[in-house]
Design a protein around this nucleic acid. Structure first.
Lengths: 140, 140
DNA sequence: AATCTTTATAACATGATATAACATCGATCG
DNA sequence: CGATCGATGTTATATCATGTTATAAAGATT
């Protein structure tokens, strides 16, 4: 319950969220416009025309967006994706296609419940979790 | 260091990154495809078509895979074998401490079963999956 | 022993990803 | 005012994976 904020109301509209800094908004809009997971340096390239010149600018914005729960990082591919859920959640599940750039975030009900006892047995206190599933998506 | 049992304790103290690099993945898939122990230069030959040209590339990937507990070297024959690939696909679960470098791999029974229907509903065919749980380990 | 083949590393260069360190700017508040 | 704070800009560098060339080390063969 605490870990499960996956409402799945679909893409919550494309209007930029409030409370973003200038650079966060630029990065967020770039990512939304792309529609696919993006690498930090791809975002940087896309923003070169808007006067963004340094990696730092992008990474800081990505940090901010992630802290606000608006994006997630996919460690497996070093890419960043828009989070299409309506409020921050600590448990994320991604279906990552090996054949194409498609990444789908899904809600796996019961994952928290399944996981908790194993973590407890190991004396581990869960803060967040991210499950990256790799394989082939529907279209591939 | 354990000789030949599949201990599967996560990398301890040595902070090997989780997940596979591109070359590790290529080597891993070659070995899975073969189904038999392979020699380094056999793997190299098999990957010549994918643009792998140098022994170093293979040996580095083998080192990485071994550090992650995914393969073992058979010293007697200078061959490398997949470790613990009994399941059709592999689900790894890591408990990653945010306070210290400790990473523990655990076995979450039922994860596969829980996950499969969700993937099937999305038309997704699972190959591998990796769950990174972040939080505080027992000692922290 | 000398040589050849197979197995494995050393050493260096490049590219991709990410951060450190410090300077600047603008707003807000006492 | 000036002090402080968050955001931004700027430069330099760290880190990780890979590519590339050459060579070391170990066994087998002659």
């Amino acid at each position: 319950m605490a870990m499960d904020g996956c409402d799945h109301e679909g893409p919550d509209g494309d209007d930029a969220p409030l409370g973003l800094t200038k650079n966060e908004r630029r990065v967020w809009e770039t990512m939304v416009g792309s529609g696919e997971p993006m690498k930090a340096y791809e975002i940087l390239d896309a923003l070169k025309g808007s006067g963004v010149r340094a990696p730092m600018t992008v990474y800081r914005a990505l940090d901010g967006l992630e802290a606000k729960g608006l994006i997630h990082k996919l460690e497996g591919k070093n890419t960043y994706v828009i989070c299409n859920h309506s409020r921050p959640h600590r448990l994320q599940v991604f279906l990552v296609c090996d054949e194409c750039p498609t990444v789908t975030e899904i809600d796996v009900k019961g994952l928290d419940t399944l996981l908790s006892p194993f973590a407890r047995d190991a004396g581990f206190k869960i803060e967040t979790a991210r499950l990256e599933v790799r394989g082939r998506c529907e279209g591939c």
